[in-house]
Amino acid sequence: MPKADEEKGAPRMALPIRTPWERYAHVLRHLYDPAERWDLIISGLPMPLRPRAIEAGCDAADVRNPRSARFNDAGAACKQHVLTDHDRFYSPAYLDSVASAIRLRRHQLQPANGATLYVGDNGVLTVVGGEKEDAGYVTSAFRVKPRGVPSHAVRQEDFIRAAVDRMKELTVLGPQGGRGEGP
């Protein structure tokens, strides 16, 4: 756990997403979204991810349309498969993003809720909670989709740029905007 005397929002190593149902939801929504192109940054990622999850026992409708997915309704085999994908592929990628973002000084405090946003050299935008039970835990991690370019032509550099741009925009306005850290 983070030390209590650490400055609020100060960059620090993060802990994985806290609960299994949040891990399940984020894997379905982000890691399994083909448009987020996690294959560009995770070597050995078994593709395609969605058919693989369906084969492992997940409901096809839930996998293709994660908004309707409910953790409680998923079968044990599906949960195990998705949570294993979290541990093997998703969490190493987002934790690596935090670590490299600290080295690159590419992180910003979100003044509205004390969270810190990180964009590492893999272009994953990772959010680490700053308050209460979320403090120090990753609360979200996703790849910002570059726009203005067909998905087949998108480059890893486009993902990094899109994530950095969004991180700055998300933290620059608002009630206490402009108090971000990093570049």
Binding site: R29, V127, S140, K145, R166, E169, L170
Partner: peptide, 23 residues
């Protein structure tokens, strides 16, 4: 619609709202 119905975190929702704003 997906982000709203799935109850995604505020940052992911914010990002797609900005995508709409950009367009």
């Amino acid at each position: 619609s997906q982000a709203l119905e799935a109850g995604d975190g505020p940052e992911a929702l914010h990002t797609i709202l900005l995508d709409v704003d950009d367009l």
